[in-house]
Design a protein around this nucleic acid. Structure first.
Lengths: 175, 175
DNA sequence: CAATTAGGTCAGGACGGTTGACATAACACA
DNA sequence: TGTGTTATGTCAACCGTCCTGACCTAATTG
């Protein structure tokens, strides 16, 4: 085992007690941390359920977006997920082999592979979204202005401005 | 290339157009998706800055919590992060070798390794939190009731109930 | 017919996590 | 004193999810 470093006192920034640096109203530690914990638990519900299928988060994301936009082509999926086709490959194959998704040749351009959920795939996706929706609903009930629109606006405001049109496009079905 | 599956019609759950299943008010696709995108962009700011140091999210989390709780011991860090010491090992070593953190033998129990940020480590941590805080601040400004407390309550409500005491403990410095 | 596009695959590597086993130093206690 | 336990670190092997680069087929486009 390597021993603890010998220290010159000025190597340590904050001994013996925490000295908040400059009180800075643009340094909101609590909300930053809460966002981290909130996302962690938000995703944990789904992680547990997916583990039973031997799937991970990558499978979840693919399943989710194919259910949201049935008939999506592979290239669109890659754009949304911002991953390479080499990364998508195994995940997509497993979902198809497990009977959760199917591919159909594009009716006009037969090079395309249109992605559809099977009934089984849709059922799982709905279960997952249901769990996450309940957690969100519960969280909204806990706030003072029980205002879904405010939360929506908050989350939308968290998205990179240049991305917002793209996300709005994804959402156009049902805001 | 493997061809698209030949399909019996009943293999496909949603062709040719999307048929929402049962309209279910506990199935909030838009907020679920927004939460996903919001977190993605929330973390992306920090990812970019950390890349310059050759660090990843694991380093970010360690740096963050050591800055929040200077003098934290390794075991506490493992509890918060919910990872194994084998996972933490290399991350911690790199942060120490890069001069962002230091370890000090515990004053009462010399088996313990108290973790402290260096001034350099603190500076980086503050920079990262600053970027994330600005995004949160901007998002709050975009909502109707510009109410930080509502957002705080929302995020807190997203956390697993059994975890809330622990998170509240972490937050006790400054809610 | 030639070039481009949509999609798939193989190889190799990085990162961040896991489990299991083991080592060391320090503490706790009978 | 000695024995057991605790805090930490490390080695090995593995997995999931991403990456880049190279190459392939089939279909469309010009």
């Amino acid at each position: 085992m390597s021993g603890p470093n010998d220290l010159k006192d000025d190597d340590i920034a904050s001994q013996p007690v925490y000295q908040p640096p400059e009180p800075d109203e643009d340094l909101d530690f609590p909300l930053v941390e809460l966002f981290f914990f909130a996302y962690r638990d938000f995703i944990a519900d789904a992680d547990d359920m997916l583990e039973e299928y031997g799937f991970g988060r990558a499978h979840h994301r693919v399943l989710h977006f194919v259910n949201r936009r049935p008939g999506m082509v592979v290239a669109e999926l890659l754009d949304i997920l911002r991953i390479t086709k080499q990364s998508l490959g195994p995940v997509l194959r497993q979902l198809i082999e497990s009977g959760l998704l199917v591919q159909v040749a594009g009716p006009e351009d037969r090079r395309q592979r249109l992605l559809y959920p099977t009934q089984k795939g849709r059922n799982l996706s709905i279960q997952l979204t249901h769990m996450q929706s309940r957690r969100i609903k519960g969280a909204i009930e806990g706030i003072k202005n029980k205002d879904r629109e405010s939360v929506r606006d908050f989350l939308f405001g968290m998205i990179e401005p240049e991305e917002r049109d793209l996300v709005n496009g994804l959402m156009e079905q049902d805001k």
